[in-house]
Amino acid sequence: MSALDDRPLLVAEGLTKHYGQHIGCADVSLDIHEGEVVAVVGESGSGKSTLLGLLSTQLLPSAGSVRYLMRDGEERELLSLSEAERRFLLRTDWGFVHQDARLGLRMGVSAGGNVGERLMAVGWRHYGRIRAEAEHWLDRVEIARSRIDDRPDTFSGGMRQRLQIAKNMVTRPRLIFMDEPTGGLDVSVQARLLDLIRGFVSDYGLAAVIVTHDLAVARLLSHRIVVMRHGRVIETGLTDQVLDDPREPYTQLLVASILQA
């Protein structure tokens, strides 16, 4: 379907965000293609989350633009979408996985209700079908069906992240934004989650923007890498190239520090 269409899914140009006098992120331009996973790396405070917020229209830029190729093939400037269109996009064609599961889940609502929420938001009104769909996605993220009526506050950290993924996947998004999805998890739990994300990306042809300060996560998941420092992109390229042969001294430092660890 998109063989004829090599237009990028998302095009960001000159994205800048000031927090008062302070710069959150400055003059970032970036393309994301269908099925492509882009990692945004850099130390804490380098502007990764700000960039993710701008790309996903959660933050208003001080300057710059984001265009997106809608499902109907039309390219739209995201800032020009009506609030209703924007919400629809966010909860159908996009997904969000937060480091803090409480931002992505309703902790007082059962796992099934969490997964079903997007479906109900787009008009599903058959309880049995919503539940069947929720069971399907719980299977896919390896959460036992018997937990469908339990609330996520009874889940482990790893399960919560997997539930966030299931919650997003029900509408078959084409693009998913993740901010430190494995942050704060034990190494073995991290590995399982990364495996799952990798599987989803390839099975569903998902495009993803993954913010991480962990170069190993970037190495494992991403095709392309964007290195940020002081709110600017200082280096970008294919993940293996950048990690094996970093150009910028700062990137060399980042890579060296992980090799030492």
């Binding site: 609502v109 059962s110 099934g112 109900m120 309880y127 919503i130 009526d149």
Partner: peptide
Amino acid sequence: GLMHVKLYEDIAR
């Protein structure tokens, strides 16, 4: 949609 989430929770419980 959220209102139906509440009704969903009712039925689930």
